[in-house]
Simulated assay, not measured.
Amino acid sequence: MQLYRQALKTCLDWSGSRQQWYARARAIRAEFEANRNIGNREAAERMLTHGEQLLAEWKHPDPLVPPYYVGGTAFSRNPPMPEQIKIVMDFGREGAH
């Protein structure tokens, strides 16, 4: 299951649009479904190892990162203000009233 999810995420990194990704995702799903009922444990482990090797080969050098995750485009975009800076909320009224 984890290999399937990682394959979809890696495929999304390489896709230019969602339409391309949908077609590739269907192909990935079909391959997993074709090998779903393998009864031999050794064959299943061999296929899993092969899938992990393929995933490592296809790993994108600059994967997509959601904006709010570490390394994303909006992560820490608005960092907290330093403690020495004070915000005055009564701008324009200070000292007059």
Rank of each mutant, 00 (worst) to 15 (best):
D62E: 14
D62G: 01
W58I: 11
G72P: 04
L48R: 14
I38F: 04
A44V: 09
M89G: 02
A56P: 03
P61Q: 10
G92F: 05
L55N: 05
N37R: 11
T73P: 04
I85Q: 03
H50D: 15
H50M: 14
R93G: 07
Q53N: 13
Q84C: 12
V88E: 14
E31S: 12
E52W: 03
L64M: 08
P82E: 00
Y68W: 09
D62N: 03
D62Q: 02
E45Q: 09
K86H: 13
V70I: 11
Q84K: 13
M81D: 09
G51A: 06
I85T: 10
S76M: 05
N40Y: 06
A43K: 08
S76H: 02
P61F: 07
P82G: 01
R77N: 05
G51K: 05
P61W: 04
Y68A: 08
F75T: 00
P61K: 10
M81H: 09
W58G: 08
Q84P: 03
K86M: 10
L48K: 06
L54Y: 12
N40H: 02
F75N: 02
H60L: 05
G71P: 02
E31M: 13
E94P: 00
T49L: 07
F75E: 02
A34M: 11
D90S: 10
P61L: 01
M47F: 01
P63G: 03
A44W: 04
N40S: 01
I85H: 00
A74T: 06
G92V: 08
E45D: 12
A34V: 09
E94G: 11
P66C: 12
P82Q: 03
F91C: 13
F91E: 15
A30Y: 06
I85S: 10
E94A: 08
F75P: 02
L64Q: 12
F75I: 03
L64E: 10
N35D: 13
D90F: 02
P66G: 14
E45M: 13
I87F: 07
N35C: 03
P63C: 11
P61D: 01
V65F: 14
A43E: 06
Y69P: 00
L64T: 08
P80E: 05
G51N: 03
G39E: 06
T49A: 12
M47K: 04
I38L: 09
V70T: 15
R46Q: 07
E57F: 15
E31K: 15
A30E: 15
V65D: 07
M47S: 04
P79Q: 01
G39F: 02
I38G: 02
Q84M: 07
A44M: 15
N37V: 13
E33Q: 12
N40M: 05
E45G: 00
L48V: 08
P82F: 03
E31L: 15
E57P: 02
P67R: 10
P67W: 11
A30H: 12
E45H: 04
E42M: 07
A74D: 10
F32L: 08
Y68T: 09
F75A: 04
G92Q: 11
A44N: 03
E83H: 01
R36C: 11
Y69Q: 14
E52P: 02
I38P: 03
G92M: 01
A56G: 15
T49V: 03
I38V: 04
Y68H: 11
